[in-house]
């Protein structure tokens, strides 16, 4: 039986799997670090397989949750089927369980933790509306749904109810909070009109 040998000093460093980044001009560079901006903060993360590093197999969802401790982004299926892991990259809602972190080098990412005002703590109007309408039960689906809504309203300030439903249709909600979610989102839309 292996004994407790202290934290991770027996894990060999990986070398061979550094990601190759192909630049626009076609040249190949190997990187030791990648840069991410998350909720306005810049991170430089070493590529590797120790704690605090980005393993090339890590998804963005994993890095956000385990490396950056931004656990507001949830993992449901880890397979692109449920929407739990939705974050915003370049204004678009993306499934962070389907992206490798190394693919996100240089990208700016917004997670659920980045929506409220960092100084005053004031909630984003979407968040506030979810609070006011109790648009959740267990709340596990909520971060993903709010991030998708944020991206939707960024693109289309006054979607119809049908458009809201369609754009959220990739989100699993087992408690069936859908009806209150739609009320909450349409309330934000109405107020914006």
């Amino acid at each position: 039986m292996p004994q407790n040998k202290g934290v991770e000093n027996d894990i060999p460093r990986i070398k061979a799997t550094l990601p190759k980044i192909i630049t626009e001009s076609g040249s190949v560079i190997e990187k030791e670090f990648i840069e991410l901006t998350v909720n306005g903060e810049a991170y430089e993360l070493r590529i590797g397989n120790r704690h605090g590093e980005v393993d090339p197999v890590h998804t963005l969802a994993h890095t956000l949750r385990e490396t950056l401790n931004l656990t507001g982004t949830k993992i449901g299926c880890d397979n692109g089927a449920c929407g739990a892991c939705t974050v915003i990259i370049d204004g678009k809602a993306v499934l962070s369980c389907l992206m490798l972190t190394v693919e996100c080098d240089g990208k700016s990412i917004t997670t659920i933790e980045g929506l409220a005002d960092p100084i005053t703590g004031a909630l984003d109007p979407i968040q506030q509306s979810f609070v006011d309408h109790t648009a959740f039960q267990c709340g596990y689906c909520t971060p993903g749904i709010i991030m998708s809504t944020k991206a939707l309203l960024h693109k289309n300030q006054s979607p119809t109810e049908q458009e809201v439903k369609e754009s959220l249709s990739g989100h699993y909600c087992r408690c069936i909070s859908h009806y209150h979610v739609i009320e909450a989102v349409m309330d934000v839309v109405e107020r914006g009109r």
């Binding site: 507001g72 968040q127 609070v131 109790t134 709340g139």
Partner: peptide
């Protein structure tokens, strides 16, 4: 109706589910 006591934690992603505990 009143907002849930835990509403802000939930909508800001600060609610700590078991898988979130470090």
């Amino acid at each position: 109706p009143a907002p849930r006591k835990d509403a802000v934690e939930i909508v800001t992603g600060h609610a700590k589910f078991v898988g979130d505990i470090k």
